[in-house]
C-alpha cells in the first residue's frame, strides 16, 4: 500500500512539473510582455509619452529581462515556497488577492456538480439496465444523446431565457444582492446553495449524460456474469444480488473517471460562469485571457489542473481500495 501511494504521489509530482512548464509556455505565448502591457495600461490616455527606455526600466524592475528558464524558476519558487503566483497587472495587486474567495466558490460549484451527477446518474442507470427496454431505459438513451449534443453554455442560455420569460427572475450570480457583501452566516450559505443549483444542474448535464451511458453499459455487462447467476443459485434475494454483485461493480468505472469528470466540469465552467455571471475562477480566467493578464491566467490554469491531478490520484486510490484485483505494489 505504501509503495503504491509513494509511486502515485511521485507520478503526480512529475505530471505537475510538466504541466507547469506547459502553463508557463502559454503565459509567455502572447506577443509583447508584461512590461509593454503595464506601460500601456499605466500611461495610456494620461498624455505621458512612454519611451522604450521607460519600458526597459519597467521590464528590469520586474526582472522580465532575464532568460525564460530563470523566470520560470522564480515563478515556481514563488509558488512552492510562498504560495505566491505573482502579480496581476490588470488589477495591480497580487494574483492571490485577485483569486481570493473565487477559489472556494469554484470548489463549491465543482463538488455540488459532482455530487449531483453521481446521485442522479448511478441509480437511474442501474435501474435502466435492470429494466432493459423499459420507458426509463429508452428515455435514458434520448437524454444521454441530448446531454452530449447540447453544450452546457447553450443550456445555461436556455435556462436564463426560461427564467427571465417564464419566472421573470434572473438566475445569474451566486448570491442575492442583499447577501453579496454581507459577512458569512448560515443564511448567506443557504442563499448561496440556492444559487448553486442552476450552475450545478447546467454543469452536471453532460457529465450525467456520459455517466448514465457508462454505468448502464457496465451494469448490463455485469448482469450477464456467471457470478450473478451463481449468487442467484445460492438463493439470495434478487435485490440483494443486484446491489451486492453487478451494482457494486458498475460503480467502479464511475470512480475511475472522477478525474475525467472534474476535467470536463472545469473545461465547461468558464463559459457557463460567463453566461450565468458566477464569481469564480473560470470567469476570471476568460477575463484575464482577454486582458492578457497572463499571471492570473497561469495561476488559474495551474490550480484547475492541480485539482484534476489530485482527483485523479483520489480516484486511483479509491479504485485500488474498491477492486482487490488491482495490485497495490506500484507500477
Amino acid at each position: 500500500m505504501l509503495r503504491f501511494l509513494v509511486h502515485r504521489i511521485f507520478g503526480l509530482l512529475v505530471t505537475m512539473f510538466f504541466v507547469s512548464i506547459m502553463v508557463f509556455i502559454i503565459m509567455e505565448l502572447p506577443p509583447g510582455d508584461y512590461a509593454d502591457r503595464y506601460a500601456f495600461r499605466k500611461f495610456s490616455g494620461t498624455g505621458v509619452n512612454v519611451t522604450q527606455g521607460d519600458i526597459d526600466n519597467i521590464r528590469h524592475g520586474f526582472g522580465l529581462d532575464r532568460p525564460a528558464h530563470i523566470r520560470y524558476a522564480q515563478w515556481m519558487t514563488g509558488i512552492l515556497t510562498r504560495f505566491d503566483f505573482g502579480e496581476s497587472f490588470a488589477y495591480e495587486t497580487s494574483v492571490n488577492h485577485v483569486i481570493g474567495q473565487r477559489l472556494w466558490m469554484t470548489l463549491a460549484i465543482l463538488y455540488t456538480t459532482l455530487i449531483l451527477t453521481y446521485v442522479l446518474s448511478i441509480p437511474i442507470a442501474i435501474y435502466a439496465a435492470v429494466n432493459r427496454h423499459s420507458s426509463v431505459d429508452y428515455s435514458l438513451t434520448v437524454v444521454s444523446y441530448l446531454g452530449l449534443a447540447l453544450p452546457n453554455f447553450l443550456l445555461a442560455l436556455v435556462m436564463l431565457y426560461v427564467s427571465v420569460t417564464v419566472f421573470d427572475t434572473s438566475v445569474g450570480g451566486l448570491f442575492s444582492p442583499e447577501y453579496e457583501k454581507a459577512p458569512w452566516s448560515l443564511v448567506k450559505l443557504g442563499d448561496m446553495l440556492q444559487h448553486l443549483i442552476i450552475p450545478a444542474v447546467v454543469l452536471a448535464w453532460s457529465a450525467t449524460a456520459l455517466q448514465l451511458q457508462t454505468v448502464r453499459a457496465t451494469m448490463l455487462d455485469e448482469l450477464n456474469k456467471l457470478s450473478v447467476t451463481a449468487a442467484r443459485a445460492r438463493g439470495i434475494p434478487e435485490w440483494k444480488v443486484l446491489m451486492k454483485y453487478p451494482a457494486r461493480l458498475a460503480v467502479n468505472p464511475v470512480v475511475s473517471t472522477i478525474g475525467f469528470d472534474v476535467n470536463r466540469i472545469f473545461s465547461e465552467l468558464p463559459i457557463v460562469a460567463l453566461v450565468l455571471g458566477l464569481p469564480e475562477l473560470g470567469e476570471l480566467l476568460i477575463q484575464s485571457y482577454l486582458d492578457l493578464d497572463m499571471y492570473v491566467a497561469g495561476a488559474i490554469l495551474m490550480m484547475l489542473t492541480f485539482f484534476i491531478v489530485i482527483m485523479n490520484f483520489v480516484s486511483d486510490v479509491a479504485l485500488a481500495a474498491l477492486d482487490p484485483r488491482i495490485k497495490l505494489s506500484g507500477v
Binding site: K225, L226, S227, T229, A230, R248, L322, P324
Partner: peptide, 10 residues
C-alpha cells in the same frame, strides 16, 4: 467456470 462463478471483489 469457477473463476467467473465468484465475484472478483469479495
Amino acid at each position: 467456470e469457477p473463476m467467473a462463478s465468484f465475484s472478483p471483489v469479495y
